[in-house]
């Protein structure tokens, strides 16, 4: 079999300039992008024979539940672990995500996503960790809806694809809106519903969504992000109306 050819966009640091290097690794059945990068670590030599530092990337679980290894594979944002070589057109190109600051090579800094979860109170306020009895009974169909939303691994695919989300604006983005929907749905979470909605109504909030609908197409967990966005629009509109009547 022909060796696997990988053209990789590299960058030495946040302020460095990017450059491309091409590597070749032997073909192996069931190889994925991560296993190819691991091969490069064992022999970090470019196709032209130049010895270089191994490529740097993030990964952890290698089974698409941690969200770490998100990058652009052949221009498409996805997790590199489930990117099987046999299913991809070669030569492969690997690039870091473009909507987050590059740390080094394929590593990016997605801390903005976690900050957004703080801004929106994305948690359930509990009384404490002590034995204070059962949680609320929840219909299984509500659980099923919540479960799908709760599979979000904060990978950032939806934000990479979103035309509204840029490196330097304050747009919260689909992942955050969907988490707000998740916590607002929960019987205990609903006690803080308005607080979360108010965060979503600020600058960078739900009204900035351009309705491009690409987020839902790239989500590796098939989370119905556009439904979440619609639900957030509805809830925030209701809150605005309520505020008018209460003022």
């Amino acid at each position: 079999m022909k060796p696997i050819s990988l053209k990789i966009k590299r960058q030495d640091g946040p302020n460095g300039r990017s450059y491309w290097q091409t590597f070749e690794t032997p073909y192996r059945p069931f190889a994925n992008v991560i296993s190819c990068l691991q091969e490069i670590q064992k022999s970090p030599v470019t196709r032209e024979g130049k010895k270089v530092p191994p490529v740097v990337w993030d990964c952890n679980c290698l089974e698409e539940v941690c969200g770490s290894c998100t990058m652009l594979v052949n221009g498409k944002v996805r997790q590199a672990c489930t990117a099987l070589i046999d299913n991809l057109e070669g030569p492969l190109t690997l690039e870091p995500m473009s909507k987050f600051p590059v740390v080094r090579d394929l590593q990016v800094d997605r801390s903005r996503m976690f900050e957004n979860l703080k801004k929106t109170n994305s948690w359930i306020d509990i009384d404490g960790t002590h034995d204070i009895g059962e949680g609320p009974a929840i219909p299984d169909q509500d659980r099923a809806t919540a479960y799908v939303l709760s599979e979000c691994m904060t990978c950032g695919c939806c934000l990479e694809a979103c035309p509204q989300f840029t490196l330097d604006n304050s747009f919260l983005g689909a992942a955050t809106f969907s988490q707000v929907r998740l916590f607002n749905m929960h019987p205990t979470g609903a006690t803080q519903k308005e607080k979360r909605l108010e965060a979503v109504m600020k600058e960078g909030g739900i009204t900035d969504c351009g309705n491009a609908q690409v987020c839902v197409e790239v989500c590796p967990k098939k989370i119905p992000l556009t439904d979440s966005i619609a639900e957030m629009s509805r809830e925030t509109s209701l809150l605005s109306i309520k505020k008018i009547f209460n003022s």
Binding site: W123, I124, I126, D127, T129, D131, I132, G133, E134, G135, A137, I138, P139, D140, R143, A146, Y147, S150, F183, H186, T188, G189
Partner: peptide
């Protein structure tokens, strides 16, 4: 029960437990 109160979407029975 603690995890349930924290919002873990545990699968439910028909009665919601």
């Amino acid at each position: 029960h603690l995890l349930d109160r924290m919002g873990v979407p545990f699968n439910r029975t028909s009665e919601g437990h």
